[in-house]
Simulated scan of single mutants.
Amino acid sequence: MDGVTAVHEAYRAHYRRLVGQVYALTGSLPEAQDVVHEAFARALARPARFLAVNDPETWLRTVAMNLARTRHWRQRFLDRLIRSGRAGPPDDHPGLSPDRVALMAALRKLPRPTREAVVLHHLADLPVAEVAAALDVPVGTVKARLSRGRTALARHLTDEPISDERTVRYA
């Protein structure tokens, strides 16, 4: 199989899943789609290199996450421009289901490192060890971030007060 064919097959196999993961990370579906498309474009730019990759989905996820991080920092710069009055605010996102909006809002409240761990583990279904490798942090750090992230999400997503932060009530 040639590299271009490998990229096309990877697109069919992994595109939707990667968009879902990056969407949960960024909170913006168009941005997630754009970042994942850019990751595939980079694979197509060097198909022989992509063919040599052991795990295409992991490679694409890493590229997409790095692109999302870069965009995050650029967005922070734009936000500073808006606050300074040198640029106008961006348009709002199109309507989404209330549950999706609540989840994305809760995820956005988490610190970025915690959000990345939660998205990779719970939405990308990666084991803790793979999350640690993807984020280049120790396994214990990932476990701590996941614990803090679940507690914070429970607090943000429930209508009832949580008496013990370690106990999450499910309806």
Rank of each mutant, 00 (worst) to 15 (best):
R46N: 12
S84E: 13
E130F: 00
A87K: 07
L25I: 03
P56L: 03
L96G: 01
A106W: 06
H121P: 01
L96T: 10
L78D: 15
D136C: 08
L81A: 13
G85L: 08
G88H: 12
P138R: 11
A133C: 01
T26I: 09
D91P: 10
A102H: 07
E57K: 06
H72K: 11
E9F: 07
H14G: 09
V128D: 01
V7E: 09
H14T: 04
T114D: 09
A102N: 05
Q33F: 02
R49F: 04
R83I: 04
Y170L: 15
L153V: 04
T26R: 13
R74E: 13
R49I: 02
T167W: 07
T70H: 09
L157K: 03
G20M: 07
S28D: 15
H37Y: 02
A87M: 12
A64L: 01
T167D: 09
S28E: 14
R12G: 14
R115K: 11
T58A: 15
P94H: 04
R71S: 08
T151C: 08
A52R: 15
L44W: 02
V19W: 10
A43T: 09
G140N: 12
P30M: 12
A41H: 08
A133R: 13
T5Y: 00
R17M: 11
R112V: 13
D92Y: 02
A24R: 15
W73Y: 15
E57G: 08
H8L: 12
H72L: 15
R166N: 09
R74I: 05
Q75T: 14
E9M: 09
L44Q: 03
V36M: 10
L44T: 06
D91T: 06
L51N: 03
A154F: 04
G20N: 14
T114L: 02
L51V: 00
L96S: 02
A41D: 14
R71K: 13
A124I: 00
A133P: 00
A52G: 12
Q21Y: 06
L110C: 09
L51H: 13
H37C: 07
V35C: 09
R74C: 04
E31D: 15
T26V: 15
K109Q: 15
P47N: 13
G149Q: 03
R49Y: 01
R166M: 06
R80N: 05
H8W: 01
L110V: 04
V131I: 05
A87R: 14
N54W: 03
A13T: 10
G95I: 01
L81V: 05
A45L: 11
P127M: 03
D2N: 15
G3N: 07
A13K: 11
L51M: 12
E31C: 08
V19R: 11
I82M: 07
Y170K: 08
L67Y: 03
L60R: 04
Y170E: 10
